[in-house]
């Protein structure tokens, strides 16, 4: 047999008699609804920001972690020899999966954002770049660096550490800011619902006193207010979440050119995250209103 929920948690069943003991509150109802909707809207965007920055941090971390570059600066007549020597060394270095010298077209593509497409790469003393892809175990960067400096003096190993660290740290910090924003939005919503509930409790002091004098328990009186504010908050938060999710879904996609800004969206199972906002908002409203109601009731004998 299914055990019934304790009364204080029965928010959505039919209990119109309990609800009716609290007078309709007009403007306060709409304000609670609107506040919950606005907060949920902001919360969805903060969540999207947090998820996107998390994704970005992971991507940067992964992309740069598995790669390294050897830069060879040598006179033109020695460039081919030194390049081959480096490739030979890399081919026997444990942890290196592939090593490949960039051809002039690839080098030009790398430089064209700064110097334009007409750069005469062949006539300029541009270093030769060798792209290294590591195995999951990775290679001993320090050992390789020592060997290269001994055998190919013009070669310099860049394992991307100095690029990766600040980027990943920045992305992690952005993710943390998103989560802090979410917590602040939750706290602001709790404060607003508490204020609205306290205003309603204060305006209904005579109702509360009358109910107590005819034998109403604190839980009964609190439940009447809690039900009202929790259902309003849930409704408002659901509406705000729906609008925000629609707005995010309709954000234009600019592909790779858009970068981070157009990446503020949810992907796959991430779309489930914003769906947790309305129930969480309802829980916040439940706790805030019940606490305010019970505190207020303690002033009535």
């Amino acid at each position: 047999m299914k055990a019934p929920l304790p009364r204080k948690f029965r928010l959505f069943g039919r209990d119109t008699r309990t609800d009716r003991v609290v007078p309709p509150s007009g403007a306060a109802a709409w304000l609670t609804l609107l506040t919950a909707a606005a907060m949920a809207f902001l919360a969805v965007f903060a969540l999207a920001l947090s998820v996107a920055t998390g994704r970005l941090a992971d991507r940067w971390s992964e992309a740069l972690a598995n790669g390294a570059t050897v830069r060879i600066s040598a006179p033109a007549d020695q460039m081919a020899t030194q390049t081959q020597r480096v490739l030979d060394i890399l081919s026997v270095t444990p942890g290196v999966e592939t090593a490949r010298a960039l051809d002039p077209a690839e080098t030009q593509a790398l430089l064209s954002p700064w110097f334009g497409p007409d750069l005469p790469v062949a006539s300029l003393p541009i270093p030769q770049l060798i792209d290294i892809q590591e195995t999951p175990q990775g290679f001993d960067a320090e050992g390789l660096r020592l060997r290269l400096s001994a055998e190919v003096p013009g070669a310099t190993l860049d394992d991307h550490q100095r690029w990766r660290r600040p980027l990943v740290a920045a992305a992690d910090r952005m993710r943390m800011l998103g989560l802090i924003s979410l917590a602040l939005i939750g706290a602001a919503m709790a404060a607003m619902v508490t204020l609205a509930a306290m205003a309603a409790l204060s305006a209904n002091g005579q109702v509360i006193r009358t109910l107590r004098l005819i034998g109403a328990r604190d839980g009964y009186v609190a439940r009447a207010f809690v039900r009202r504010f929790t259902t309003r908050t849930l409704t408002g938060a659901a509406a705000g979440t729906a609008v925000a999710m629609t707005a995010i879904a309709l954000m234009p996609s600019a592909g790779d050119a858009g970068g981070f800004l157009t990446d503020i969206a949810f992907q796959g199972a991430e779309w489930l995250w914003p769906l947790t906002i309305p129930p969480l908002a309802a829980i916040v409203a439940f706790v805030a209103t019940r606490t305010a109601a019970l505190r207020s009731l303690r002033t009535v004998l």
């Binding site: 006193r209 009358t210 109910l211 005819i214 034998g215 328990r217 009731l297 303690r298 004998l301």
Partner: peptide, 22 residues
């Protein structure tokens, strides 16, 4: 407080100011 509420259910009171839920 709950015990007070339960006791009040056994006492019918006609108050001088007759408060109702308007």
């Amino acid at each position: 407080r709950d015990a007070v509420a339960m006791a009040r259910r056994k006492i019918g009171v006609v108050h001088q100011d007759c408060q109702f839920l308007d």
